[in-house]
Simulated assay, not measured.
Amino acid sequence: MSSIAPLPPARPAAPGRPKDMEKAGAILEAARRLFTAHGFDGASMDQIAAEAGVSKLTVYSHYGDKDTLFAAVVKSYCEQNLPDSLFESAPDMPIRERLMQVGRVFFAFVSSPEAVAGHRMLCSPRMADSPLPGKFWEAGPARVQRVFADLLRRRANRGELEIEDPTLAARQFLTLLKGELHTRMVLGCCGHCDDPEGHVAASVDFFLRAYAPRDGR
């Protein structure tokens, strides 16, 4: 009887996308830590590469320059902490409860050390004539406004809100949540909110007084 041919040895995993994605994630995490700790100008690409355990060439090959890397950090951090799933309509949930849910997560996000540090960086004179604030806006706040406006639009279509301009209403709600507290955090006048639940509830109730259906539904 002929012997069975042995199986060929398993091939090692080919280098490529998984490894590249792992490096990209390490770079983003290192950049987030260093930008938060040292600011935009204080964090060098050399430091970021060393923190991520990669070469500076690898950092540049993934992100091109420090402005692009900063925008990528903002986008990644926003998507992780304010994912699109947070803004799903959830039609079975009462509208006040839904707004409270969104408000809690959003306020915790804008109060985080990373978010506060990011806003401080953008307030520096160096940023005045830089394209970086525009990149920051598109990478973070603009997306959140769009997806939250969609939530409001869907709820208004169900008759739970009376809103003619969901985009404007989304901006107003998110601005209410940030309020004076966020400005004081960015300026270093206070480090945290003593009553975040009360702050979110007051913002939600104010918003609903403006946009609840006139028939009281």
Results as ranks from 00 to 15, higher is better:
2 S>W: 11
4 I>K: 13
7 L>P: 01
9 P>K: 07
11 R>T: 14
23 K>E: 15
26 A>T: 03
29 E>C: 02
32 R>E: 15
34 L>N: 02
39 G>T: 13
40 F>P: 01
40 F>S: 09
41 D>N: 06
53 G>P: 04
67 D>L: 09
69 L>D: 11
74 V>G: 02
75 K>G: 05
79 E>I: 01
81 N>M: 09
83 P>G: 06
89 S>I: 04
107 F>Y: 15
108 A>R: 15
110 V>C: 13
113 P>K: 04
115 A>R: 09
115 A>G: 07
116 V>C: 06
116 V>D: 14
119 H>T: 08
119 H>M: 12
123 C>P: 00
125 P>L: 10
127 M>F: 04
130 S>D: 13
131 P>Y: 09
135 K>V: 05
138 E>P: 03
139 A>N: 06
139 A>Y: 11
140 G>F: 12
141 P>R: 10
144 V>G: 03
145 Q>S: 05
145 Q>G: 10
146 R>G: 12
147 V>Y: 06
148 F>W: 06
150 D>I: 00
164 E>M: 07
167 T>M: 06
168 L>T: 12
168 L>D: 05
169 A>S: 11
173 F>E: 03
176 L>I: 00
177 L>A: 03
178 K>C: 15
178 K>P: 02
183 T>M: 09
184 R>S: 10
194 D>P: 00
195 D>A: 14
196 P>Y: 09
198 G>V: 03
200 V>W: 06
207 F>E: 02
208 L>T: 04
209 R>N: 12
211 Y>A: 05
211 Y>N: 01
216 G>N: 00
217 R>C: 01
